Amino acid sequence: MFAQIVLFDGFDPLDVVAPYEVLSAGGNAAGGALEVELVSAEGAREVPSGVGALSLRATARLDPGRGGLLVVPGAAGRLEGDGDDTVVAVLRRALGTELPVLLREAVDRSGLVVSTVCGGSLLLAMAGLIQGRRATTHHLGLDELAAAGVTAIKARVVDDGDLVTGAGVTSGLDLGLHLLERELGPRVALAVEELFAHERRGTAWRDAGAAAVPLAAEGAGAVA
């Protein structure tokens, strides 16, 4: 199996590095069953992040034709020399590249699971690619995600079949572990949890089981 993690100018480094390390370790734990590569819409290049002078190198061009996993990060901070430091502004600039065309091919591709960390789901939503789907993002962006026609779920990880999304930046660890358990099995995921001394938080939301009825806060009925 092959996993591609997308880089674009202004990406959030933790959104990339957390799933990269988890998926890479999972591939090692599974005897090489998963390979991970950093990619960009333009091909091999140094890609500046939105955090200081930190950059990462994409080693190949994003290829939607390859099956497996695709991870889309969110954005962070200001690009050097750019006065607009909002996350949404950075995402809009990414939409002005070839990236949304390639992401559309990826979303439409059978056999490819598209996943996101933090504002990566906003990027897909702003590109018009996930209307009507269930997804999550950083808690500050849930309203914006809903305004883009997405059913926003307040959960750490939301598994909507071939779309798997993570919430805030550190959820990249939990997203990666969920993908490992789903694709390679729980023993591989547990081995990586133990390696990184990180126990997943919360329950991954899936469209399964009985719907929950609204619950009152404990003791609320006793409050006058």
Rank of each mutant, 00 (worst) to 15 (best):
A53K: 09
P186F: 05
L103P: 02
I130L: 10
I153E: 15
V17A: 11
V16C: 05
V36A: 09
A189G: 10
L179W: 14
A167E: 04
T86D: 02
V17F: 02
S24F: 08
T170M: 11
G81E: 08
A220N: 07
G83T: 13
A216T: 11
V51R: 02
G81C: 04
P64N: 02
L56H: 09
R61E: 13
V223C: 07
A204N: 06
F11G: 05
V6R: 05
A127M: 09
C118K: 00
H178V: 01
E80I: 00
G67K: 01
T151Q: 14
I130K: 04
H138F: 15
V107G: 02
T116W: 09
G67C: 01
T116L: 13
D160V: 01
L56G: 12
G26K: 08
R92A: 01
R57I: 15
F2W: 11
A3L: 08
L129P: 04
A44V: 11
F11M: 05
V223M: 14
Q131W: 11
D12H: 02
T137W: 06
E199F: 10
V6F: 00
S171N: 01
V113A: 07
A189I: 12
D63I: 03
G120R: 08
L124S: 05
V157K: 02
G50K: 00
L102C: 01
E194W: 00
G132K: 04
G74P: 03
E218G: 04
R134N: 10
L179A: 03
D15E: 08
A106Q: 09
G50Q: 14
A29W: 11
S171D: 01
A220K: 04
G96S: 06
T203L: 12
E105D: 04
A191D: 04
V101G: 00
A60P: 12
L54H: 10
R182A: 10
E37Y: 08
P186C: 12
E218M: 03
P73C: 12
A217K: 12
I153N: 01
V47C: 10
G10M: 00
E199R: 03
V213R: 15
A94M: 07
S110G: 05
G221M: 14
G96N: 13
T116P: 10
V158M: 11
A148L: 15
E199Q: 14
G26H: 06
L99K: 02
G50H: 14
L122R: 15
V6S: 02
S40F: 07
L179M: 03
S171I: 02
L184V: 13
L95P: 13
L38W: 03
R109L: 03
P48L: 03
L175F: 04
G50M: 10
V213C: 08
A75C: 06
G27A: 11
L122H: 10
V36M: 04
A135H: 15
G31W: 04
C118G: 00
T165M: 05
